[in-house]
């Protein structure tokens, strides 16, 4: 299992090596394209800053008021029974609906428990293998006027649930 952690350390340098080598053989202007791409990335980050401010404030209010703790206390009998981290429940549901709101909740968990805690590691992996199902479905199907989506939602929920279960198992195996 520790080979997975070894892979984690290798992926980013390996991606650099492969893309630079690939770009070199295709005779692409490496540095110039890097700069243009980095500038695009900066724009993306600046564009998400307002949503991040809005949602981090909203989550901050929820946290400071004690509402998140009450919610956790309320659902903890069920989550303890299922073996699921209680603090991750609001994030898990929000993840299906909105990526900016779920980022707000993710950062709240990092702030409160730290990214290297058991829960911090679990939600990091969980966020890497799930999608904003509800949002994506509405954008894509609305664009072509489909109203009957048949088995898309159950299928997507099964996929996301499988990802969450694998994330939980791996967190327990690697970090518990």
């Amino acid at each position: 299992m520790t080979v997975l952690l070894y892979i984690s350390n290798l992926i980013i340098p390996l991606t650099f090596a492969l893309i630079i080598a690939y770009g070199y053989t295709k005779r692409v202007d490496l540095y110039e394209n890097f700069i243009v791409g980095a500038k695009d990335g900066m724009k993306t980050v600046v564009d998400i800053l307002p949503t991040l401010i809005g949602l981090m404030v909203a989550v901050g209010v929820l946290r400071a008021s004690g509402a998140l703790d009450y919610l956790s206390a309320l659902i903890s009998p069920l989550t303890v029974y299922l073996g699921y981290p209680t603090e991750a429940v609001p994030l898990t549901f929000m993840r299906l609906v909105s990526s900016s709101a779920s980022n707000g909740l993710l950062l709240d968990i990092f702030e409160k428990y730290g990214p290297d805690s058991y829960i911090g590691r679990f939600v990091s992996i969980m966020m890497s293998c799930t999608e904003t199902v509800i949002y994506t479905m509405s954008v894509y199907f609305m664009s072509v006027g489909i109203t009957k989506t048949r088995y898309t939602l159950p299928g997507a929920l099964i996929a996301n649930l499988a990802g969450i279960i694998v994330a939980l198992i791996l967190t327990n195996m690697l970090f518990a």
């Binding site: 080979v3 997975l4 984690s8 992926i11 990091s124 890497s128 293998c129 996301n160 990802g163 967190t171």
Partner: peptide
């Protein structure tokens, strides 16, 4: 920070 890449890959594959 990047220790979650490997497990994330497997979980993504699983989903």
């Amino acid at each position: 920070p990047s220790e979650i890449i490997g497990p994330g890959l497997i979980a993504t594959l699983g989903s």
